[in-house]
């Protein structure tokens, strides 16, 4: 693929991200450990990968482990965790930090909580840029304005000076996207980026995200519990259950999914005109979690 010429050259590594046998566990109260992620493996090129699953299925912890943001009491292990040829498992904390925001970025769920309430939106965007590039403040400011414009914010000058509580959820999330993409990362992990937003705003934000990912040729990991959303937005879908990948399907062939859990999820998607009584429920067979 050819990257747009104005962007820093993309690394030739393909696939960009290799995850093999990723495991994340946390100490349990009263001894023992809870395994949140149990042997997840996948590879990712410059494509849009969706990870779906219910709460506690380990999808968010998978994303955070790739970024190196697992809580300090958690333990991460992997046979291989490579990003652009860099072995993430053997990076120093400083190398990990420089990758974050610079090469791998993350958009979090709710801008109400994920933006710092006492800093202006502009300062928070500039901060990302200055953490990764040597740049004068005024230059960073210009870039931040451009970034706000790129997420369809009409008057960046005004929004730049606003505090997070002064903007709507949709605008906050677009500012968040601007903040995370300003340093031109290769990979974006979007952890439920639209779940906290109104349905009408969801589509706007997704459109912004989609346009930027395609335009810059980024890889995207889209974490969600919304199967319908993921299937329209992504190229490929991993279905997670109890810390494991139970099925991998391409988005177009979701209807052919074989695993009973995926089928159960699909069954729960309401269809227009179909009877919804009784509401379908999910079976959870103990052998799936083995």
């Amino acid at each position: 693929m050819n990257a747009p010429p104005h962007l820093p050259s993309r690394s030739p590594y393909d696939p960009m991200l290799v995850v093999e046998d990723l495991r994340v566990s946390f100490p349990r109260r009263g001894g023992g450990r809870t395994e949140a992620v149990r042997g997840v493996s996948f590879t990712l090129g410059r494509e849009r990968l969706g990870i779906v699953g219910e709460s506690g299925s380990g999808k968010s912890q998978t994303g955070r482990a790739i970024l190196g943001l697992t809580a300090p009491e958690g333990r991460v292990s992997a046979r291989r965790l490579m990003f652009n040829g860099v072995d993430l498992m053997h990076c120093t904390p400083r190398e990990r930090r420089l990758l974050r925001g610079g090469r791998i970025a993350m958009v979090l769920q709710d801008p109400k909580y994920s933006l710092n309430p006492v800093m202006t939106i502009g300062d928070q965007i500039v901060e990302t840029l200055r953490a990764h590039t040597r740049m004068s403040f005024s230059e960073a400011r210009t870039r931040a304005m451009a970034a706000l414009e790129s997420v369809q914010i009409d008057d960046p000058k005004r929004v730049y000076t606003l505090y997070p509580h002064e903007v709507s959820g949709g605008m906050g999330q677009r500012a968040m996207i601007a903040m995370m993409l300003i340093a031109n990362p290769d990979l974006l992990i979007a952890d439920e980026p639209t779940s906290a937003l109104d349905v009408t705003v969801q589509l706007q934000v997704l459109a912004v995200l989609d346009a930027l990912v395609v335009e810059r040729g980024m890889g995207l990991i889209f974490i969600s519990h919304d199967l319908r959303l993921v299937s329209t937005f992504c190229d490929r879908i991993l279905v997670m259950y109890a810390g494991q990948v139970v099925e991998e399907v391409s988005a177009g062939r979701l209807a052919d999914a074989k695993h009973p859990y995926t089928r159960g999820l699909l069954n729960c998607v309401p269809k227009l005109g179909a009877s919804v009584h009784p509401l379908p429920t999910l079976d959870r067979l103990p052998e799936w979690a083995l």
Binding site: L67, L69, R97, L98, L99, R100, G101, G102, A105, M106, L108, Q109, D110, Y113, S114, L115, N116, P117, V118, M119, E127, T128, A131, H132, M176, M179, M180, A183
Partner: peptide, 24 residues
């Protein structure tokens, strides 16, 4: 969550502690 976001931005730990968390 904004601390997680600040880490995801790649800020240094000291900046996260003093500029973000302590400021709040």
């Amino acid at each position: 969550e904004y601390v997680v976001a600040a880490r995801a931005k790649g800020l240094s730990e000291s900046r996260i502690i003093w500029r973000h968390a302590l400021r709040n």
